[in-house]
Design a protein around this nucleic acid. Sequence first.
DNA 1: CTGTATTTTCAGAAATTTTTGAAAATTCTA
DNA 2: TAGAATTTTCAAAAATTTCTGAAAATACAG
Lengths: 188, 188
Amino acid sequence: MKLSSQAQAFILHFGEMGSRWGFNRTVGQMFALLTIQSEPMNADQLAQALKISRGNVSMGLKELQSWRLVELRHLPGDRKDYFTAAGSIWDLARTVFEERRKRELDPTLSLLRELLLNAPEDKQEAEEQKKIQEVYNLLELLDRFANTLSRLEQKDLIKLMKLGSGISKLLELKNKATGVQGGKSTAK
Amino acid sequence: MKLSSQAQAFILHFGEMGSRWGFNRTVGQMFALLTIQSEPMNADQLAQALKISRGNVSMGLKELQSWRLVELRHLPGDRKDYFTAAGSIWDLARTVFEERRKRELDPTLSLLRELLLNAPEDKQEAEEQKKIQEVYNLLELLDRFANTLSRLEQKDLIKLMKLGSGISKLLELKNKATGVQGGKSTAK
DNA sequence: CTGTATTTTCAGAAATTTTTGAAAATTCTA
DNA sequence: TAGAATTTTCAAAAATTTCTGAAAATACAG
């Protein structure tokens, strides 16, 4: 398997960005390779193309499976496991988005929820709890919103994303349509 | 400076989550401490409260300033530099969101743009470019959308986030208002 | 079963990132 | 301008993460 120089560049870049996106360099590279190459690849091919060890590929594939970003395939007459990117680019993006929401938001929400269960012992702790509550409210809202977005049909999601500053106008439109004059929203 | 046990837990958690949010453990802890404590703190106080070295605090503060998450203050009659979280919880969240967009999306967009400038040399490269283009289109749209969201007034942003599944309905409403045809059951 | 093909595991090595702390640089006061 | 207070720098140490490769485990064909 020889990689074109653009594929090389694409793969190396995703390796470098990997840590910012939530996985390590070689996992990022494997993901990039499987995304740019639509052909399924087996572990040996991945190891050879990326010049990394067989063991590393095995671990990386496990990680990518835990992110639900790759799919196991079997080719007729070949006992090896083959892998492809799980779905279209949009599917992959949605999956990364969902997994990151889970990993970046959920643990924090549950810690904050726990902290808020304890009655504050003094003035100081009461102040702190106010802040914790604010952080919680914000992250909770963000979490719900992220959930809503990732459940939206692709068509609607694209429409929404393309609205640009038209969003504000649309929100006004909604007020008119529902008769709300700008105070607290009735819907929770 | 003695930390309550809930402050302790809050700080340690943000330290652990730090890497997922884009900074290292002690930077995460410093940010958490400055967020939960509304009082400005100087570098020595931070070092003492978090039990980390003075040098580490200095570097961490520089990092937090580059994220625009802390503000330098001066107290009358004290030569030391004091720091506070830069704004309300909402301001902070918006800033983190913007900075992450810059760091996670922009470098990739510019690489992909470059790759797309080169004419494909063969069938293989042409196929790859199709994928690269798809990734580019998606990330570009996402980037614009993130931009739009972070420019929205807080009031509107909250309204939008609270819409939940009402978003789809609102998008339909928009179609009606602008005369676009294809109400409830348009084909996918 | 037996033997071969394939994948997984994991201890240690290598690479990378973070942290320390002392020295250097800077800023301010008198 | 001297010198004290404060902050920054950065080389080296420590901690953490990633990667390798050989051995163990698993899966399968005959």
